[in-house]
Design a binder for these strands. Structure first.
Lengths: 217, 217
DNA sequence: ATAAAAATTTAGACTAGTCTAAATTTTTAG
DNA sequence: CTAAAAATTTAGACTAGTCTAAATTTTTAT
């Protein structure tokens, strides 16, 4: 049985591993968990002792199979709770991250199973992230970033890579909601900002920074 | 902001204070929290420093107004989550205590408010316990124990004082459900066990130990 | 190739919450 | 009333998770 803290490290290692090549570094973990590198090192030794990560001093870290299974279990809980908060309690998609961050640590298999059933076995959370299966598989989506699309492409907004309140509220103000169909009118040569034509709406400018955090297909 | 542990102490002090006269003792707290008396003493000093309890060495303990407000807030959360688990997720009333014990510590006013609305502002939890108001008042019920009723009394089963799985499953097996109307047929002079006639059912024997944990009106 | 910079680890310390054993205070029984 | 029992507190120690400062290893830039 893992502690609250250990669970957060596993989740963070998983998250960072999907966003970069190779091993996850101590400093990256320190930044994400808002602790100091020395503290991370201590925890890595502990997780390695428990066989949840592969760890060689100075060489970064990688989840073991068991570690990944646990990480996906926590991510599954997090995303199911987010669906609950938005679908059932009426929270905005920009308000649920921190609450789900706490709910995900409630330990009960039965609870997660029943919640999943209650929600109708959702495939995606309110940010378009796929919900891992009960068996611990992360569904493949095949989405790419909006920043990688070209002029003329007609695409659908499927997810976001950034979950901060500020970012999500910005999308709300731009009328960019998940599932909406957009066409890329133009990509600015200077700052790579994207002019998108939203289905039944007026065109909006999306900065390159924002485009890199939007998932489409 | 209180820690998980502090919240549990406050809740336990409240619970014990309602079940006995005068101050709550160190030993009683140690037993309830499954820790040693020495650990309780340490925590009491800490809670006293924070002005959440009145505490004089060797003299037992009592919640301050602020301490009681916090205790009731936690109990409110606990009971609302129990309603959710039973009403929405379909858990049995004997399965929800431990899960609610974890959910009650999730820190979000907004979450509790929305949950309350979602559940339709319930007045009682699945065990018949009244749900404290948002303002921090514990509703009065005026229930008495079944063990205090007399032969011939016609009463309604309104709540339980014991939340263990074993106890609740025993009630299920006896067909004693909350809200059911019973008549006291006889009280055994030797062991004080109670023979109750359940509305539209066969009579059942209830031991004095059980009768002391049933609330009626 | 090697020195400086960056990243990481080690050493030693701190807090929250817990424990055991010993000391102290209160209660109880004769 | 007083001695024994019970309850409580103190003293000192331990674990989990964190920190700072110093030491070590790896990477980078000449």
């Amino acid at each position: 049985m893992q502690s609250f803290t250990e669970e957060n490290y596993l989740k963070t290692i998983y998250y960072l591993a999907t966003r970069q090549e190779g091993e996850v570094t101590t400093n990256a973990l320190a930044e994400m968990t808002a602790t100091r590198a020395a503290s991370v090192t201590d925890m890595l030794r502990k997780l390695a002792d428990k066989q949840l990560i592969h760890y060689k001093k100075y060489q970064g870290v990688r989840l073991t199979e068991e570690g990944e299974r646990l990480a996906l279990q926590i991510i599954r809980r997090h995303r199911l709770w987010e669906v609950f908060l938005v679908e059932k309690l009426g929270f905005g998609w920009d308000e649920v991250h921190d609450i789900a961050e706490e709910l995900e640590h409630v330990r009960s298999e039965e609870l997660v199973t029943r919640l999943d059933t209650y929600l109708g076995y959702p495939q995606f959370d309110p940010h378009g992230d796929p919900i891992p299966t009960p068996a611990g598989q992360m569904p493949e989506t095949g989405y790419r970033k909006l920043s990688e699309a070209g002029p003329g492409d007609s695409i659908r907004l499927m997810g976001v890579l950034e979950h901060s309140t500020a970012f999500l509220q910005h999308l709300d103000r731009c009328n960019l909601t998940l599932g909406c169909l957009v066409t890329i009118a133009e990509i600015n040569a200077f700052d790579k900002s994207v002019l998108v034509q939203i289905e039944s709406g007026r065109p909006v400018f999306v900065s390159h920074e924002v485009a890199k955090n939007l998932l489409v297909n």
